[in-house]
Amino acid sequence: MRSQKKKKRTWLKITGIILLLLVIGVGVYAYNVYSSLKTAVETMHEPVVQKQSEKREKPVALTDKDPFSVLMLGVDERKGDRGRSDTMIVLTVNPNNNSVKMLSIPRDTRTEIIGKGTVDKINHAYAFGGVEMSMNTVENFLNIPIDYYMKVNMQGFKDIVDAVGGVTVNNTLDFSYGGIHFAKGNINLNGNDALKFVRMRKEDPRGDFGRQTRQRQVIQAVLNEGASVSSLANYSDIFAAIGKNVKTNLTFDQMVDIQKNYKSAASNLTQMEIKETGTKIGGIYYGLVSDQERQRLQTELRTQLELK
């Protein structure tokens, strides 16, 4: 009897030690993930020299769950060349109605470039004045405050895709680009393939809109893969690739607040598109947006941000 009790206590002790080691192991692993993420975000952090937006009465308070906006810029940066923002996406996040609205702005959209005093293609704002001029120009075009930005170096985008182990997307257009054939249906893409997949434009019947759709597909696929359990083993590679190729004015604490207070909004994403008329002015192609269309976009986005 005593022997059985002793054996029972021994097994309970062994089991307890194993569980304790597992908890400690998970704790250390979680700490390492947290530490690597914080280091990556600190590397990513790049404030803009910009005053409080005139289109807001007071700064955004993420702890109070205020709706906010983010300008995502996909930039081709090469040595000695700032490049242009060939991808411009505005996200407006509202935790009160649990929704995110995503608006892709075609790079050829003709508008006033704020700070330059010219009317040009909207993606030239980055070439003229970097992130700050891009934010100010988009603010003016959409009549909303741009609270934060996130810039992705498209040359390094392939590193991020490779770090998550590649992505799978549902391709709706059979085409070839850069020596690679992209068949219809579900296709697996490594970093190099993904970069070419999102760059093709001329063969797409929808032009820039079609390319924007593919860009959103790959971005969503990267997010899905990055959040999967299988990617946890590669977290150091993922964070290193992100830290090297992404810049933002969001701090680590602000990202934590967004994760805590806005998580449910991410499950309800609506994609918006701008209706444009293509034309040539002085031999250069532009996308013209009517006053009526611009007003429609502004009203929808201001409502999403709960602005008067």
Rank of each mutant, 00 (worst) to 15 (best):
M150V: 10
G226L: 05
V138A: 04
D193I: 00
V100Q: 02
N186M: 13
Q4V: 15
A194Q: 03
N136F: 09
V60C: 01
K247T: 12
V222M: 10
D208K: 06
V93F: 07
I274K: 03
S267P: 07
D237P: 00
Y235Q: 04
R214L: 07
R206K: 15
Y34L: 02
V218P: 02
L305R: 04
T279Y: 04
E306M: 14
N136K: 14
S264V: 13
E139A: 11
N188H: 12
N245E: 11
V246Y: 00
A30D: 08
D253R: 12
P95E: 10
G16R: 12
G210V: 02
E293Q: 14
T43D: 12
T213R: 13
M154I: 13
V90F: 03
V93A: 04
N94I: 00
G278S: 14
N97H: 12
T15F: 15
G243R: 00
Q4C: 12
I144T: 08
Y29H: 06
Y235C: 02
Y31M: 00
T270Y: 09
Y177A: 09
D120G: 09
T92Q: 01
E112Q: 13
Y148R: 07
G283S: 00
P205N: 06
G226N: 07
K308S: 15
N261D: 09
E293L: 06
T279S: 08
V48I: 05
K8Y: 13
R82L: 15
Y235P: 08
D253P: 10
E112K: 12
L91W: 07
G243P: 00
K8C: 13
P145L: 01
L103E: 04
I24A: 11
V164D: 07
L19Y: 03
I219R: 02
A40V: 08
K196C: 04
Q254P: 04
D174E: 15
Y235M: 11
K260Q: 05
K275Y: 09
V169I: 05
I114D: 02
M72P: 04
I24M: 00
L37M: 15
P205S: 11
S264W: 09
I122P: 08
R110W: 08
Q52D: 11
Q215A: 07
I238K: 03
R84T: 01
P59I: 08
T213S: 14
G243W: 05
Y34C: 02
V70Y: 11
T111A: 10
H45W: 05
V256K: 14
G117T: 06
F141Q: 03
S36K: 03
T109I: 03
T63R: 13
L71N: 01
R201H: 12
K151N: 05
S134G: 02
L19S: 07
G278N: 12
R211Q: 08
Q50W: 11
F239D: 09
Y148P: 03
S236K: 15
K8W: 14
K58E: 15
F197V: 05
K196G: 07
P205L: 06
G278L: 01
F209S: 15
R294L: 10
L189P: 02
I284W: 08
I18L: 10
K65W: 05
L250A: 00
N98R: 15
V93K: 00
N234Y: 11
K79A: 15
L62M: 05
I187V: 08
Q215W: 08
E54P: 08
D237S: 13
N98S: 15
P205D: 10
V33H: 03
R201S: 10
L73P: 10
